[in-house]
Amino acid sequence: MNEDLDRFEGMTEDEIEELNDSLLDEIGKRITEYELRTAIVNPAKIKQLEFVHEILSILLEGQDVKIAKKVFKPFKSMGSVSVEGAEIKIRYPDIFMKIASFADNIEVYPLVKEAVRMTFTFHGVTKPIE
C-alpha cells in the first residue's frame, strides 16, 4: 500500500489524475483484447462455483439472506457467488474455509441499503485458446 502511495509523491493533482486515466485506459484496452479472444469454458471452475453456491445455501439456511450466482460476468473469464443480508452469520467456519479455497478472493462490504454483501470471485471460468 505505501509503495503505491510513494508513486504519487511529488506529483500534482492533475498529474495523478492523468496517470490514473492512462492506467484505466490501459486496463480497458487489455480487457477488450482479452474479451475478443476465443475462449473455452473451464468446466471444473464452473463446477466449483456451483458447489460454493450450493454449500452456501445450506450453510446459511434459515437466515434472511439472498444468494446469487453469476457466470461469465462482469467478464467472460469471471464468475461470482454473492450473499446479501443485514447480517451474515457463518456457523461452520471449517466448511466455509473449504469452499473459500475454491474462490480467488472474498470481499465483504456495506451496501447503501441496510445490508452487507459477501462475494466469492472466481477467475478462469473460461480460458483463452492460445
Binding site: I90, A103, I106
Partner: peptide
C-alpha cells in the same frame, strides 16, 4: 481476502466458533 495468500483471516476463523458480518 485473497484466498491463496491471506492466511490471517482463515487462521482466525479456524479458531473462532462462529463469525458474522453486519453493516
Amino acid at each position: 481476502v485473497q484466498t491463496r495468500t491471506d492466511r490471517e483471516f482463515f487462521e482466525l476463523i479456524s479458531i473462532a466458533d462462529t463469525f458474522k458480518f453486519s453493516k
